[in-house]
């Protein structure tokens, strides 16, 4: 995390505003159900991109396509100017894409510190023998990565629960630890699936602040799914609106808010 506090310039000299991820005509089916219908959109370097829409619209499915859980039946995924072949999730992670889940997916048997340290696994490649002897590279890497992790822990203000087993934490903190684990990977693209679901107002404010700070300070590009329209309007640079697997709106929060189709979808469909 060497350049964590310096202004954001990507390591291969890419500029803010360039296209980071380009989804082209994505269609995803589960059996007969079309969860995503021919959707195209892009995500630009440095922006906060929101995906909104009623329950079952296909938002999580879209994140799952980006992170490699599902391979779409049709369409192309372009990342950093290259077409991405079908990949396993762990390969996608190695490209620099990290995420959190709608239902928290932490390692319940491990401490907060170990959970966040797992986020650094892609930055650690000491061999078996070095690790077995705890000498040389393994020992060095452990310290270096611990330092990086401690910066994330400070940043998200979870110092006090460092050594606590994750299973004992309340819901709001678990969400924050999950964000910490994703951040520890120093992703180029961070995907957040309903990071504020189930939170009270205060927790939501904290989380919004963290998301904005991550984007500001580290220049991390973020794609997030969120139900709370107020939050989305405050946080995001551009918004995609989905409904029944289709894209019905795409633009700045103001543009989207005044889009008639979006208004209809939101008035017509109950959502939580």
């Amino acid at each position: 995390m060497k350049d964590m506090l310096t202004p954001y310039v990507t390591d291969d000299g890419r500029q803010i505003g360039e296209t980071l991820m380009d989804m082209r005509n994505i269609t995803l089916r589960f059996g007969g159900v079309e969860a995503i219908k021919d959707i195209s959109f892009n995500i630009q370097e440095g922006e906060i991109r929101a995906i909104i829409g009623p329950n079952g619209a296909g938002k999580s499915s879209m994140l799952n396509v980006i992170s490699g859980f599902y391979n779409p039946q049709e369409g192309e995924v372009w990342f950093r100017g290259k077409k991405r072949p079908p990949m396993k999730p762990f390969q996608v992670a190695r490209l620099g894409i990290a995420r959190t889940f709608q239902n928290i997916a932490l390692f319940e048997g491990m401490s907060v510190l170990d959970n966040v340290m797992t986020g650094r696994l892609n930055h650690m490649n000491a061999g078996l023998f070095s690790q077995a002897l705890w000498k040389g590279r393994a020992e060095r890497e452990e310290t270096e990565n611990r330092e990086a992790v401690e910066r994330v822990i400070d940043f998200l203000e979870i110092q006090a629960i460092r050594k606590t087993p994750v299973g004992r934490l309340p819901y709001g903190l678990k969400k924050r630890v999950e964000l910490a684990r994703a951040l520890a990977a120093e992703p180029k693209l961070l995907l957040l699936d309903e990071p504020m679901a189930g939170m009270n107002v205060e927790e939501k404010e904290d989380m919004s602040r963290f998301i904005l700070d991550v984007n500001d300070e580290f220049g991390t590009t973020i794609a997030l799914i969120e139900h709370d329209m107020g939050v989305v309007m405050d946080l995001s640079d551009r918004v995609i609106v989905m409904d029944y697997g289709r894209k019905i709106g795409d633009g700045t929060p103001d543009e989207v808010r005044n889009n008639q189709e979006v208004i209809d979808a939101y008035l017509g469909v109950a959502h939580d």
Partner: peptide, 26 residues
């Protein structure tokens, strides 16, 4: 030594939740 370092965390991540382990690159 193996269990307190990155290999150990790799194993435990698979034990606790293999889907999440994959998403962080395991």
């Amino acid at each position: 030594n193996l269990t307190r370092g990155s290999l150990g965390r790799t194993w435990m991540s698979i034990r606790d939740m293999d889907i999440a382990a994959e998403i962080i690159g395991v």
